[in-house]
Design a protein around this nucleic acid. Structure first.
Lengths: 205, 205
DNA sequence: ACACTTACTAGAATCCGTTCTAACTTCGGT
DNA sequence: ACCGAAGTTAGAACGGATTCTAGTAAGTGT
């Protein structure tokens, strides 16, 4: 039901030859493209396989389940977010301001491909997978709030993770059509101001 | 994909005869029982129908999709939580203390049937359904924090919903085996103390 | 080049949610 | 007591994820 053991989680090990890396890339690309249209339902394993030019069995060798495939796609999206943040770091003065900045940037990114976003978020939540998602997002928030992962106290870790949880929830509500972008921004700001107040290098409260 | 229109959402209208109410009850009971064991996968529509003593088609008449069935089961659980709270209201002195009390009580309840909890929580999050879950839980938190729904400001509503989101997330992590009961308690306390500080009748901060 | 393990392919097969069909009951109104 | 509408039933049928099979390529060591 999960396991991405012998298969490379990311740009990692396991794929011996160049053609295997390319296959993997083609698969991920096909999956993302399909999900960008009809969402999860359009991203059928047969279709992904066909579009990637591999046999169904091969697809399952690379990604033991649809979920694993989705998780991999999400991973790539997260990579992109992180590099975007590295390129143009959030400029706000306060830690919570920077966190909001990052989350809303991610929100905009996801809104560009709502079907994809829907598929990804839901799959992520469903995943049995030890998904490095919550952790990754929390780490990211800690970092932009001004703490290099290691230096954070437990409480700060919890607070960053909490803000991440709130964001995910709001995203889900948006996908259900119950939030606008502005709603999310306002709500995330409220939550962030409480959760991230008094962080190091915080605002003058 | 959803729609429980002509069918009674709860103890509501739509079911004419007594035997229909009983059928509905038998279905929900069978579903919960099955989910208590093998989780979602054990709760197969065919099996539920068989165990409830109705035809598959009838099951689908009462609950147009598996999701609707799950949502109904969750609704019943929530009913039980609310009546439990009515019977024995949280006693803590501060709003956030009472909120933590309620959430941990719900957590214990869910932990008693981990497979069921897993199935329900995930299904809920997935649901396209306009599920009254987040809202219901947020309203509940507001109430125990000391505000009868209507009287809350938007900010307070957001904060209560945020705490609910954090709780759900922690629950998911627990179901993944990454949190103990004590972890959750500690983390919820941290988040609640931030999110619900300065509520009316709040502690002396 | 040869043998051999490993990867890949095409396609059938299985499992489960959901839908459809045709016949049988139950119920409300008369 | 009888009729038509709505509710039930057993079971077949469909669709998509996942698994399985037999055979074909590709990569590795000698």
């Amino acid at each position: 039901m999960e396991a991405v053991q012998d298969l490379p989680p990311g740009t990692a090990p396991g794929l011996r030859t160049k053609s295997q890396l390319q296959r993997r890339r083609r698969i991920l690309q096909a999956a993302a493209a399909l999900a960008s249209r009809g969402g999860v339902e359009a991203m059928q394993m047969r279709t992904v396989a066909e579009r990637a030019g591999v046999a169904l069995g091969t697809l399952y060798r690379y990604f033991p389940s649809k979920m694993d495939l989705v998780v991999a796609v999400v991973g790539e999206e997260l990579d992109m977010l992180e590099s975007s943040i590295a390129r143009r770091p959030p400029a706000a003065a306060t830690p919570d301001g920077r966190a909001v900045d990052v989350l809303m940037r991610a929100t905009r990114g996801l809104m560009r491909e709502p079907e994809l976003a829907d598929a990804l978020i839901r799959a992520l939540i469903l995943a049995d997978v030890e998904l490095p998602f919550g952790d990754r997002m929390a780490g990211l928030l800690l970092r932009v709030a001004g703490l290099s992962d290691g230096r954070a106290t437990e409480e700060q870790g919890v607070l960053a993770a909490s803000l991440g949880a709130v964001w995910v929830q709001e995203l889900l509500e948006m996908l259900r059509g119950r939030r606008t972008y502005e709603d999310i921004q306002r709500r995330i700001e409220i939550a962030a101001s409480r959760l991230l107040a008094e962080f190091p290098a915080s605002r003058a409260e």
